[in-house]
Design a protein around this nucleic acid. Structure first.
Lengths: 250, 250
DNA sequence: CGATGGTTTTTTGTATACAGAACCATATCG
DNA sequence: CGATATGGTTCTGTATACAAAAAACCATCG
């Protein structure tokens, strides 16, 4: 109401503040360890203190910020080890959802849906043969596949937990973007990942819970190795979101 | 400030409101599905609307309440299946932390600490031979053991996730209380669980990650079977916290 | 020149006021 | 008699005011 610099008036202030703050943290505009003053966030988000405060509580619960004993919050600093651990957690959770889906069985419709998703990813990987132009589309689709996989478990509790497991940046196998120069490696990684995607879906279709679990854990290990490679050799792979979070650790 | 019905003045209003609300939900004073009006919570907790609102946001993030599309929150209703799933999730997470602890190795001091914890539980189980008087102590100690196990992983990310996995009521193997009449079965359960506790600690000490993982998963399966038994035959075992949450499902 | 104490300023925690939306009940019209 | 409009009531979402605590700053003293 002070100024009408509203980018979108249809969304509630609370949601706007949450998205703004999360973006500020993930983009690195707020340095790890930096104290978050409510007032400055009011200035940056345009919302009042109340929505900002609610967003801060949510972000604390999400794990992106942590409370300061004397009051207020600071941006949480993640180490490389934290990221690796998050990937492992995600692997364990996705192994569990895959196993559960296989054991309980899934509807043909759901199976068809997720296979469609796989097919779309195939198309995208083909399109990326010459350029990485559509990489962000791939990231989106990949996230959709994983969400669909969670859904196959049919368990709200597991879905919720699996989603939270990926809350940390880089927890997804595709949570980094590749430089043009790394095209061959990039495609190889994507193709292997896609193969695992396909395998897990078939394992679920065949009711092989143990195998589905194993595949998703292996999938996470692949992601871990790739991230490690990316960190050791950042000329070929360049980290995208939240690079500031990890900056402090190197 | 309206009335000084403050039970404890040393704690902040926010924390008081959070604890009050959580207790109201877990105790069943608020029925599953029931809408939570901020105003009534203000009356019940003695805090103002702002702390109540913050507590509500936290509880939503915890998963105990869910937002109503038209605004506000309602108490989440859990089914028996949800509880079983939560136990499985916890099993997966504790398997992971045990595996991680084994792979990374733990300090002798930490190992001694958790072994002390085991010894204390042994004493308590012995004391329960004739009566279940100290059962609540056992529940507390068991929680401490599991927390200590999480700590062994040495990973803040894993610890955090493991703790959240147990957020749902009953997710712990000892999340139910036993009636006096069930003393023999109760002790058997506790003894088997304690055996698994001991085995996982030894597996970690011997750096057997795979085995430590398997044991904790089996531990969860035991908890699941016991809960199932308790639900089928509630004359022998009686559910404690959050019985209202599950009431709707039966 | 450094340390210490007091003062000022900022910041958080809390309460409350206000506006708009949703809900409910009633009354009116078909 | 039923459906719909309408008015009032209650609720949430948001902004803001106020007080206590913390932090920062400055001045004074050793």
């Amino acid at each position: 109401m002070t100024r009408d610099n509203d980018p979108d008036r249809s969304v509630s202030q609370t949601v706007r503040a949450l998205l703004s703050l999360r973006d500020l943290i993930l983009s690195g505009a707020l340095a790890p360890g930096e104290r978050i003053s409510e007032l400055s966030m009011v200035e940056r988000t345009g919302a009042s203190r109340t929505p900002v405060r609610m967003a801060l509580v949510r972000l604390e619960e999400e794990g992106l910020i942590e409370p300061i004993p004397s009051g207020g919050f600071s941006v949480k600093a993640f180490t490389e080890a934290d990221i690796f651990d998050a990937i492992e957690v995600r692997g364990a959770m996705e192994g569990l959802v895959a196993r559960a889906a296989a054991q309980r069985g899934v509807s043909d419709a759901a199976l068809a849906d997720i296979r469609d998703c796989l097919a779309e990813i195939d198309v995208l990987i083909d399109a990326m043969e010459s350029s990485l132009e559509h990489f962000s589309d791939y990231v989106r689709l990949n996230a959709r596949f994983h969400a669909a996989l969670h859904e196959l478990s049919g368990s709200p509790v597991m879905i919720r937990q699996a989603e939270r497991a990926g809350a940390l940046p880089f927890a997804s196998p595709s949570g980094f973007v590749m430089a043009q120069s790394a095209l061959p490696q990039a495609r190889t990684i994507l193709i292997v990942a896609q193969d695992q995607h396909r395998c897990v879906v078939e394992a679920i279709a065949n009711r092989e819970g143990e195998r589905a679990d194993a595949i998703m854990r292996e999938h996470a290990r692949l992601a871990r190795r790739n991230l490690q490679l990316a960190l050791e050799n950042q000329t070929t792979l360049d980290l995208v979101a939240g690079s500031a979070l990890i900056r402090r650790a190197r």
